[in-house]
């Protein structure tokens, strides 16, 4: 790959970080005429340690939970200046900054109809602060605040359905994507930016420290999440499902065994069954099975 001018090398992401790759794909798909508002989190920290920055587009970080509102202000100012039509505004953050502490600001941004693309980089926990659970942490995941122990097999709740929550706002476009399918990320970002109004894309981004996989396995791990049905890829248009990526489902063990965060489940067929049930219900709900 050639060095990017919009997302420059030299940042301090871990080897095998899915978020760094996804963020680069997003900004490159959007192009130079873009302004980004970024929430606090790994992406912000590893790209902008003063005096350096990886960003080749105008970029602002304010706080953990307000990138949707900051982007709303950027968009309103560009409208006032008569420049909005030629500039893409992107708000972005992690799963915690988006679906937990920032959910209110996100909902406000969607409901007000701003012409903004919100991108959530979903690594399924608060990674920047040391792998604590978030509302988007999957069922039975071992994190530092949902630890596995004699009384617990990890996170007690399934993932919060943030894409569906966004779709319920009736916005023109909602999609999920995965670092395992880079061209699909590019296509979805370009499609989203061709539509006026609020858009939401949630990208599954593996995290080597939090998920505990071999770094060179990053893409393979991401693909398995999709291929097992645990991370369905779909597109909603105007509140209704319009597209899904069809799969020939693999058993969930194949995904679970690649990561330390699920290690405690492998000798426990009862728990694996529950996770298989999550995948099966996704497969049914989104009609994922290839004919």
């Amino acid at each position: 790959m050639e060095n990017s001018l919009l997302f420059r090398p030299g940042h301090t992401a871990c080897a095998g970080c899915g978020q760094a790759i996804a963020a680069r794909l997003v900004v490159e798909a959007s192009g130079a005429n873009t302004v980004i508002a970024n929430s606090t989190g790994c992406l912000e920290v590893f790209t902008t340690k003063y005096p350096d920055t990886a960003w080749g587009v105008p970029w602002i970080h304010s706080l953990f939970e307000n990138s949707a509102a900051v982007a709303s202000g950027v968009e309103a100012a560009l409208k006032y200046l008569g420049k909005k039509d030629s500039i893409n505004v992107i708000a972005q953050g992690g799963d915690g900054g988006t679906g937990d502490i920032g959910l209110q600001a996100l909902s406000g941004m969607l409901e007000r109809g701003h012409d903004i693309l919100y991108v959530c980089y979903d690594n399924e926990a608060y990674m920047n602060t040391g792998v604590q659970r978030s509302g988007l942490t999957p069922f039975d995941t071992n994190t530092t605040t949902s630890p596995q122990g004699v009384q617990s097999s990890g996170n007690i709740r399934p993932k919060k359905p943030v894409p569906e929550i966004c779709a319920a706002h009736g916005i023109p476009y909602v999609a999920t994507a995965s670092t395992g399918f880079p061209q699909d990320i590019t296509r979805k970002v370009k499609k989203a930016l061709s539509i006026k109004g609020p858009k939401y894309i949630q990208i599954h981004v593996p995290c080597p420290l939090g998920w505990r996989y071999e770094t060179e396995q990053m893409i393979a791990v991401a693909k398995l999440a999709v291929e097992t049905g645990l991370y369905p890829l779909f597109e909603f248009e105007n509140g209704v499902i319009a597209n899904r990526k069809q799969i020939t489902p693999k058993p969930v063990e194949e995904y679970l065994k690649t990561q330390g965060r699920f290690k405690h489940l492998l000798g426990n067929p009862e728990e694996v069954k529950k996770i298989q049930a999550v995948a099966d219900s996704n497969i049914l709900k989104y009609n994922l099975k290839a004919a």
């Binding site: 304010s62 939970e65 900051v70 100012a77 209110q104 600001a105």
Partner: peptide
């Protein structure tokens, strides 16, 4: 929180 964040973003623009 968002009112202040909106004016922050707009002022930065």
């Amino acid at each position: 929180h968002s009112a202040a964040s909106v004016v922050l973003g707009a002022s930065a623009t």
